[in-house]
Amino acid sequence: MHRVEHVMGMPIVVAVRDGEVPDEVFDWFRHVDATFSTFKEESEISRLRRGELERAEASDEVQQVLARCDELREETSGFFDIDAVDGDPSGFVKGWAVDEAAAILDRAGVTEYGINAGGDIRTRGRWTIGIQHPLERQEIAQVVEGDDLAVATSGAYERGDHVRDPHTDEAPSGILSVTITGPDLGTADAYATAAFAMGGRRAPGWTARLRGYEAMTILSDGRVLSTPNFPSA
């Protein structure tokens, strides 16, 4: 069965091959939205950004997320930097929330599930995933198949040119999309955002040296560069 709900500003799909989707999963997403949304005036993140709340006084989960965002800034040479977007951690929170939802499903004993949060996916068991074509939105550019995967894509083709190089504030050039696969969706999403922001000249080389994560970069000239173990079907 599957359930779809509109939470955190996007449709979230949870599918399981046997049994039911526990209510706890969507309760969790609503809790994340209430805590981290930049659109909710009273969320902890909104209060932090207005300076009404000190980081040290924030809840454990908020501190945990911000600490991981700091690490990711280092891991990506500043190409994933929430300070460049006034302390908005949304680029990491979505993937992290899905990782935690996966842990809820694991604890509930669900052995085969998939979660799709606005195009970023995490699975348990073997699932087949199509990666949307960056130019022809109704088409699939690549099929990914694997066990226990996180699959995150960053590109300019949905919300316009919303990813920028934090160093120059320019939209990246020469690149259409970056898809990262690996064990952890929060990390994969941040890596995809960072690689996309690097642009077509830097991104492929950078993805080639990631540890534990694979990548497929689609360049503006139509070349598709994948790391050797990218899980193409």
Partner: peptide, 21 residues
Amino acid sequence: VLTMTQFNPNIEFVGGATATS
């Protein structure tokens, strides 16, 4: 080279850059 894949009936999920509703 970037192409469109043939329709694959096994596909269960579609990933891509953040989809708005």
